[in-house]
Design a protein around this nucleic acid. Structure first.
Lengths: 187, 187
DNA sequence: ACGCTAACCGGAGACTCCTCCGTTTTGCAA
DNA sequence: TTGCAAAACGGAGGAGTCTCCGGTTAGCGT
């Protein structure tokens, strides 16, 4: 299964991603799907076959950049103590989500529908969190009985709840609170 | 300002709320606005004048029940130690949000648009959280430097991020984590 | 009782999302 | 080359959201 795409399909797919990334950056994350399709010179049907939902398109368009976020984790661990690295990465996460506003919505849609369309990025994110948490746990600065999935979903929740740029400080306070929870020693 | 509604407007408003509550309960939170208007025997225009967005309607329809949630706080404080009361109320909050699924979406929309259409319910919720937190702080079981708004938004975030009923356990673990953060003594 | 105006009503219409399916194209096999 | 299925294309259309504005009505002042 998943035989290679036909040449024309491949071309269209790439064109769509290119146009989408540009459109999101230029017109905000709520540009109409029709507009993207038109600009890419394909019909709406084609767009929807490649990306069945708006979220799928957003995810695909941002996948590369999101990978960069994940890849940042090891670097942080090299330049600061593990617990500070965890906290620093959390900031990056929330900042990323609020920059690419469409991302937060996509994230939520996937969370809500327990979706696997996100599986790829999700796994990657989970990997980054796990790495950070393990390092901090080894250093004895966070507890060991917390699941990385929970931390990831928690970060998602904070991003969702503080989507408004005016709430950046509140987001930071919530991250601090989360960190404090992670440091807590169960009695 | 806010002179009393004209008699017919008042009637329509009430009729709409009645029908909406019923429709949400019966057909899920995504029933079409048209359907609600039709069932209430008014035009869509009328519906939208009274409730400018879907979220406003949801909020109004659930306002009473939400008040009950808030009113539950003092009772909890009477029957258990303050910190356990806080935690118990958190469960109620999340459960409520997941029961009235439309509520979570409304909550988010309001958070995102920093809206005051929610102001009424928000104040009430904030009051409940404040009461609980103060009681627990007085008893020395949670720290004193945490803002009730942050806790409320945090609860909202957890609700949003664990909207899927299958994530109930994860929600509980996140609430535990939040509680641990609240208990933490800043060094 | 009766005007009159501010406030309300309601549906047509502009948009968007997404689906469905007849038409077109690709590229393998003969 | 040529034929031909399988795969991809693309737009018409159903459904929904929300806006706009001409028509209607309530209820105050006389």
């Amino acid at each position: 299964m998943t035989r290679p795409l036909r040449a024309d399909a491949q071309r269209n797919r790439e064109r769509l991603l290119e146009v989408a990334a540009q459109a999101f950056a230029h017109d905000g994350p709520q540009v109409s799907m029709d507009a993207i399709a038109k600009q890419a010179g394909v019909g709406i049907g084609t767009l929807y076959r490649h990306f069945p939902t708006r979220e799928a398109l957003v995810e695909a368009a941002y996948r590369k950049e999101l990978a960069r976020l994940c890849d940042a984790a090891p670097g942080l661990l090299e330049t600061m103590p593990p617990d500070r690295a965890v906290r620093a990465w959390m900031d990056l996460f929330v900042e990323y989500m609020s920059t690419k506003r469409g991302m937060a919505d996509a994230l939520r849609a996937v969370i809500a529908s327990g979706g696997n369309p996100f599986a790829q990025s999700r796994d990657r994110l989970l990997g980054a969190v796990t790495t950070l948490l393990h390092a901090a746990a080894d250093a004895g600065s966070v507890r060991t009985d917390v699941r990385p999935e929970d931390v990831l979903v928690g970060l998602g929740g904070i991003s969702l709840a503080t989507a408004d740029p005016a709430q950046a400080e509140q987001a930071a306070r919530l991250l601090d609170l989360l960190m404090d929870g992670l440091r807590h020693r169960p009695t």
